[in-house]
């Protein structure tokens, strides 16, 4: 069932939700937040889109296949562990860049790991969500 009110609201809410999810991802290192919640919030954005305008529209908005997101996310998280190995330290040891990036702050392998978690969670949730809502 198509609802004009929901569809219009969704268009306004979706970008806000996505921005909020990235905010959660970024602050997660020292404060509540992180890749997992961030990914879930991002999945909520696409869930709203799929409720308002159908799964096909939500898939188009996502551009890539959610399964691909899952694979990219896991690959990033796994790869971030080798930063430590490359520096001659144990697996998963955090490596930080010296320079400060404006807005984001310090950049390091834990951030890469969190981005990987974010993408994997987003990919997994949307794979399940889309599959379930396409079934009927």
């Amino acid at each position: 069932m198509f609802s004009l009110i929901l569809s219009t609201t969704a268009r306004a809410i979706m970008p806000l939700t996505l921005v909020f999810s990235v905010y959660l991802l970024m602050r997660g290192h020292n404060a509540p937040g992180g890749g997992f919640v961030g990914g879930l919030i991002a999945a909520v954005a696409f869930a709203i889109a799929s409720l308002a305008d159908g799964v096909a529209t939500a898939r188009r908005a996502l551009v890539v296949d959610p399964r691909r997101l899952m694979a990219v996310g896991l690959a990033l998280a796994l790869a971030s562990g080798f930063g430590g190995v490359a520096a001659g330290q144990p697996f998963l040891t955090g490596q930080w860049a010296e320079v400060m990036v404006p807005v984001v702050g310090k950049i390091g392998t834990p951030l890469v790991f969190d981005v990987g978690v974010y993408l994997a969670v987003l990919g997994v949730s949307l794979t399940m969500l889309f599959a379930l809502s396409e079934e009927d």
Partner: peptide, 24 residues
């Protein structure tokens, strides 16, 4: 060598990720 300890866990995980990329 310490990295030998990690490899038996990382190798199958990496294999799984690679297989995910080749889903089709």
């Amino acid at each position: 060598m310490a990295s030998l300890l990690v490899l038996p866990i990382v190798t199958p995980l990496g294999t799984a990720v690679l297989a995910l990329f080749l889903w089709r």
